[in-house]
Amino acid sequence: MDWDDLRIFLAVARAESLSGAGRRLGMDASTVGRRILRLEQAVGATLFAKTPQGYALTAEGSRLVAPAEAAETATAAAAEATRRETGISGQLRIGAPDGCANYLLPQVARGLCDAHPGLEVQIVALPRVVNLSKREADMAITVSPPDTGRLTVQRLADYHLHLAGHRDYLARHAPIRDLSDLRRHRMIGYIPDMIFDRELDYLSETGVETAAISSNSVAVQMQALRAGAGLGIVHDFALPFAPGLIPVLADRIALTRSFWLLRHADDRASRRLSVLAEALAQGLRAEIARLESVVGALPDRCT
């Protein structure tokens, strides 16, 4: 059995389509289909069933996943063992919620690429948890540890959030002296039924039940705040990127959350990924500390 065919098999199993696997592998869909047919002929079984939703594993295909993943791990370990120690190269794909992806990971990626010039860093910003079982990424950053899955979990760092509004909005609207005053103000937050992690339910901590403007994207919420559209909960590390935003009632509305790093359990033996994971963790902690120190100099707007 050809390992390269198994590699293509895993890509289809994870993408659940020939075209998705082809994009990941840099191959056209027809070639992927021919290689899957060749593998099915080699093993004497149908590995996928074509459905309206895509390519679903058959019972025989499901049984092949574990040995194929073991071959994948062994191949990666062999490549790693022969790689020169002068630097780490190749692709690293990191999945993260868009607040982290927008305001932290670009700077961290710069540090990784400076240290390893042959490295290619891909940042996947998604309004959901990245699926490592389908190999959507090599590692993922989340805002809460998972309850299930074959994953290694590492706590990265705490970060802080406060209520904030643009100075233009605050100048045009009623003073804010207490939490009860917030009911007279327009709030910006997440779309309630698209909050994919309970830790992102920030608005409930302000005492205001609904947002007048909402989005599943932190970046969109930030743009609305910069436009003077209302008040919203903001990551402290994002405030330096938004001149004009001022903390409001900072002593009464102060949230703390944590970032967690997830890796597939099979990757624990990979020295390459372990080195990159540690560098990512150190870079993220340093960047949060640097950006949050800037926020300490901002005035609290309570009137």
Rank of each mutant, 00 (worst) to 15 (best):
R14T: 15
S144N: 04
V218D: 11
D201L: 13
L25V: 09
G230I: 09
R84D: 12
V129S: 08
A71F: 14
L64K: 02
L276G: 02
P146I: 10
L132D: 01
R226E: 11
D197Q: 04
T86W: 15
G189L: 07
A42R: 14
D138T: 07
T152S: 13
A238G: 02
L249F: 07
G54L: 01
L255K: 04
L57V: 05
A66I: 00
Q223D: 08
V248D: 01
I191L: 10
F196Y: 09
T75K: 15
E278W: 14
I253S: 05
D266Q: 06
L280Y: 12
D28S: 09
R172F: 08
S274L: 07
A238Q: 09
M139Y: 02
Q282A: 11
D4A: 14
A77K: 09
V32G: 08
L105T: 05
L200T: 01
A77F: 03
L151I: 03
L276W: 06
A21T: 05
R183Y: 03
Q154P: 14
P117I: 03
D98V: 05
P247T: 14
A238K: 11
L179K: 07
I176C: 04
R84P: 10
E85H: 15
Q223R: 10
A96V: 00
L200N: 01
P52I: 06
H264F: 11
R93V: 03
Q91Y: 14
A171V: 14
T82K: 08
